[in-house]
Amino acid sequence: MTYAFPPGGLPDQSANPEGTAVFTPAYAVLPAITQADIVTSLLPGWRNMRMWILARPLSGFAETFSQYAVELLAGGGSDAPEVDEEAQSVIFVASGTLTLNIDGSTHQLAPGGYAYIPPDTVWTVWNDGDAAANFHWIRKRYVPAEGVEAPSAFVTSEKDVAPTEMPDCNGVWATTRFVEPTDLRHDMHVNIVTFQPGGRIPFAETHVMEHGLYVLQGSADYLLNKDWVTVGAGDFMWLRAFCPQACIATGDAPFRYLLYKDVNRHALL
């Protein structure tokens, strides 16, 4: 498996500045080329890190989550990565190796490694290797529900989770679900969606869930609201609630993306 990550760098002076980035009231597209060195941020309390903030709550747009792509150089990391005790996190490793400690338990995460970290949890993350370690980090404030206990931390890997084929699609569309959909402890899902070449979402999904979609591999034509856009590895799509969406996988390789959505709670009034 390969897992895309922001390329960094900067296009040379021959590049046409008119690109394919889009921001609309319904969706945004941040192509990989826009994820350059000059848009990175640093965080207090971290060492040898930089990150791309791909999504953050915006009033009237997507309001439930933030999504980062974090690069840790050798020796980089933090003993206090989270500053919001109500925030839960998902970490997904794109390259390199992370040493993740959650409430005293230490885990080594290789590419494809996945961790869920509940709110109000003591955790640390470090790169103890010689090469850079790159990971995707999705954060959401947890919404408690009466009579439902908070979820527990867990660590796994994509290679250890069997994809679930979607119905009536002859196996060309599958979802790797790291959390059981009926587990009401969880109020967000972060999955990997895979389409074989030519596979598609055969209708314009229109629903309350917000989305962050980071393309890990392959290419597709993606319907966002009324617009078809061409996306590939490293591109990020950001959708507010009820934005119609569909896709058709193109090229010879599977089209795969990391997908965030909010689930399993009342709509706030």
Rank of each mutant, 00 (worst) to 15 (best):
Pro151Thr: 05
Pro163Tyr: 04
Phe135Met: 02
His207Met: 11
Thr97Gln: 11
Asp183Arg: 15
Ser105Glu: 15
Ala145Val: 14
Ser59His: 13
Ser157Trp: 01
Leu269Ser: 13
Pro244Arg: 05
Tyr260Lys: 11
Tyr114Leu: 08
Pro17Gln: 01
Glu71His: 10
Glu63Pro: 11
Gln35Ser: 04
Cys247His: 10
Tyr114Gly: 03
Val70Cys: 09
Pro119Phe: 03
Tyr3Ala: 07
Met237Thr: 13
Gly232Asn: 03
Phe242Gln: 11
His186Glu: 07
Phe135His: 01
Pro151Ser: 08
Phe178Arg: 04
Leu30Met: 07
Ile201Gly: 04
Gly96Phe: 03
Ala87Lys: 10
Leu224Asp: 05
Cys247Pro: 00
Asp79Gly: 15
Trp52Leu: 03
Thr64Val: 15
Thr182Val: 15
Ala150His: 11
Ala15Thr: 02
Phe255Tyr: 12
Val172Gly: 04
Tyr3Val: 05
Trp238Lys: 07
Asp227Arg: 07
Pro25Leu: 13
Phe154Trp: 11
Pro244Glu: 03
Pro254Phe: 08
Ile53His: 09
Arg200His: 14
Asn127Cys: 01
Pro163Trp: 05
Ser41Gly: 13
Pro244Val: 08
Asp262His: 07
Glu210Val: 09
Pro11Phe: 01
Ile117Trp: 11
Gly251Phe: 10
Leu98Ile: 07
Glu158Cys: 10
Ala32Ile: 01
Gly60Thr: 02
Gly76Lys: 02
Asp168Cys: 06
Gly212Trp: 00
Glu85Cys: 10
Gly113Arg: 01
Leu259Asn: 14
Ala133Tyr: 08
Ala28Ser: 09
Pro81Arg: 07
Thr34Val: 05
Pro44Ala: 04
Glu180Val: 09
Val22Asn: 01
Gly45Ala: 06
Phe23His: 14
Thr164Glu: 11
Cys243Lys: 04
Gln108Thr: 10
Val148Tyr: 12
Ser14Ala: 06
Met1Arg: 14
Ala55Ser: 12
Tyr68Arg: 14
Thr97Asp: 12
Ala115Asp: 03
Thr182Arg: 09
Gln13Val: 01
Ala69Met: 08
Lys261Tyr: 10
Glu85Leu: 15
Gln217Asn: 10
Gly218Ser: 07
Arg47Asp: 08
Pro111Met: 06
Asn170Leu: 10
Ile53Cys: 11
